[in-house]
Design a protein around this nucleic acid. Structure first.
Lengths: 335, 335
DNA sequence: TTTATTTACGAAACCGGTTTCGCTCTCAGA
DNA sequence: TCTGAGAGCGAAACCGGTTTCGTAAATAAA
């Protein structure tokens, strides 16, 4: 059995409350008594029971990070950023993966109402028609910050990148490189992030008088195999695009795979630019032009917002929206 | 204020204990009473306070995953595997990054003694001269399972891949491809995993009568820039290797970068094989021959072992050591 | 009919801290 | 000398569940 505060109290012939106060360095306790308690606690290697404190204080020091997947450079870097702030602030990070399954996301958020975590960072999953599960959580006064994949209709702090402008720039870049038929690979059209990127793409196409037909935008799914078929179909069509904007990392690398399999040459036959935080984009064959999201910073910023909210006593969660720009790195795939 | 069990008891004119038992479906309570309690609890949207239960049950349902970094395909896939089992079993995953800093690792493990987590999965950091912090944790009877980077001198369950054999195979593969001067890029030589891989390399070299001199093994550090210089030095030397075995993902991709910068052609000037779980290895320029570790399975297996230990009442943690083999995928970098 | 057992529930202890409140004693100011 | 403030500490309530134990009534066994 581990040593408790009562043990110390008994051994030192003090009251439990005195020991508690001494350990918390209360002004009510004399230096002499504090020293005795500290020394004895140290000697016994006293470790306070975390859950007793939690129960009383209603604070756990845990935060949750809820995201679609982790084997993705953006999300793993975001966690890296989140963890760095958390560790510095003395918070603990719980990771939950939804794998784009809205049911999982719901059950994960529902569990948070038990008080397991003090706050939540979330990048929502694709299949969300309803946001009620997020609303429910907010109504429990559990601070929540969105990052990257946000819900636009929910009032909460949000940290995103400049999706519209980045997609615009990427599309413009392809146009400047001589592309005429540019395709946009969209992740779930239920995601705000996808819509913004698509809008940026469309705006650029429009601006440069490039036509957009119903084949210009490829709505991808949450299944790698299915997406392969979709992209393969696109690249096999007789009006095959000569430029592709990938709105997600997986989609972008998939285009590479399809092109390899179809013996299409990048950038000769088709130029490719994709949203990605892949550090080794420059090592790809050919090196990939990326819209590199500040993944680490997004995570770090979102976490900082959350901690600010948590540490604000009268927690009237103010809603900040922060945008951290992405950077277009031109490489061989659009040369 | 959230609704408590006492609230329900008062409203239904029952004892607190009766409500508690009813909610836990105890046989002591009549079906009729249970129904009343269930219905009313549902109506009030009763959510049990997690920390009150934790305090009593001495179980939190949380496990910790401690690892050097997360922006690495092996580790992110391992977490993926861990999380999948955890979610299925109803456990919650806390992630801690050490960034190869032994001090951080120590303070992280020390915190676990507060009971924040029921068990620990760990892939140790490089700079460990001492294992006392891990011993300390084990002596608190907190189940611990090593994965990938294990401590050999500590008795605990371990899940690894066949590091020796994989390195042997990789080296043999290079030899079969005609390499004569094969270099081995070692991560910290304080890691068992590095030593095993190096031994496998040496065994193969020895077996095929290839000399190993003091320049054959490059001991890398924990700093990207420094490693770049080290590898650059290696590749600039007049006895430049014609084959390289990278014992870590970051080291392997770094060789690519160095070769690019020095205009060395892969595989013509130097052939490269590396330990990696990178899914896009085949998209690199040239595609990378990998020793692909079963990262997801390693995580999954380690988590399963941990949960078995946690669910065994009389937890005499039996020490299983499981080895899941890696697979050599031959690609262009060693063609 | 008497005794033993089961059923259904309540009172209270318990987990291990935190916090409130009250008491005693000392010392300064009047 | 009397009053008031403050220092130092203890008793007990409290956080919100869980569990033990006791008891009354109902049922079964003798």
């Amino acid at each position: 059995m581990s040593v408790t505060i009562r043990q110390i109290a008994t051994d030192l012939a003090l009251a439990v409350s005195t020991v508690s106060k001494a350990l918390r360095d209360s002004h009510e306790i004399s230096p002499e008594t504090k020293r005795r308690v500290f020394d004895y606690a140290k000697k016994l290697d006293y470790i306070p029971n975390l859950y007793a404190s939690c129960l009383k204080n209603r604070k756990t020091g845990n935060i949750a990070v809820v995201l679609p997947e982790i084997a993705d450079s953006f999300f793993s870097l975001a966690i890296d950023g989140i963890e760095s702030v958390a560790q510095h602030k003395g918070y603990h990070v719980m990771v939950y993966l939804t794998h784009e399954d809205i049911r999982k996301e719901e059950s994960i958020l529902r569990d948070f109402r038990s008080g397991r975590v003090d706050g939540v960072l979330i990048s929502v999953s694709c299949g969300a028609d309803s946001n009620s599960h997020i609303h429910d959580l907010c109504s429990q006064h559990i601070p929540l910050v969105f990052f990257d994949r946000v819900c636009e209709h929910i009032q909460a702090s949000k940290v995103v990148t400049n999706d519209f402008q980045s997609a615009y720039n990427a599309t413009e870049h392809l146009i400047n490189r001589g592309c005429n038929r540019i395709a946009f690979l969209a992740m779930s059209n239920k995601l705000a992030i996808t819509n913004h990127r698509q809008k940026g793409y469309e705006e650029a196409m429009c601006r440069y008088d490039h036509p957009i037909d119903k084949n210009s935008v490829l709505n991808c799914k949450n299944d790698e195999t299915e997406n392969y078929s979709l992209i393969e179909g696109l690249m096999r069509g007789k009006d095959r695009p000569d430029g592709v904007v990938g709105s997600g990392e997986k989609l972008t690398t998939l285009v590479y795979t399809v092109c390899n399999d179809l013996n299409l040459r990048i950038p000769h036959d088709v130029k490719i630019v994709g949203f990605s935080s892949l550090e080794i984009a420059s090592l790809l064959n050919p090196s990939l032009t990326t819209i590199t999201q500040p993944a680490f910073d997004i995570g770090k910023t979102a976490a900082t917002l959350l901690f600010n909210a948590l540490e604000k006593k009268k927690g009237v969660m103010q809603q900040e929206s922060i945008t951290i720009p992405s950077v277009l790195f031109e490489r061989q795939s659009t040369r």
